[in-house]
Amino acid sequence: MALDTAEAQKVIVENLEKKAKSKSKFYLKDFYSFFPEEKPRTVKKIVNDMVAQGILEYWSSGSTTMIGLKGTGKQAGAEGED
């Protein structure tokens, strides 16, 4: 069954908000676990679209990429780039 995009976005935001107290950045793989039935590629596409829409944002160490809700986490505040 095709994943409903709006529904999927809601699930992602809810899951990230739930964990927001302890964690602000997530691996792409963490998003797969929100949708155990879906192919990784499908989830990847939804996550990347949400970045394009400004709901999520990428954080990169240079070698690894992590993803979080836009504006959360100390990096944004600390670098004066909110």
């Binding site: 990347n48 970045v51 394009a52 944002e57 990428y58 954080w59 990169s60 160490s61 240079g62 990429t65 990096q75 944004a76 670098e79 780039e81």
Partner: peptide
């Protein structure tokens, strides 16, 4: 410091934030 939130619109790679 290690990494950061920088990039150009729509791209998740190509730029590596260094502060």
């Amino acid at each position: 410091k290690h990494g950061g939130i920088v990039g150009v619109f729509g791209y998740g790679g190509g730029i590596i934030g260094r502060y």
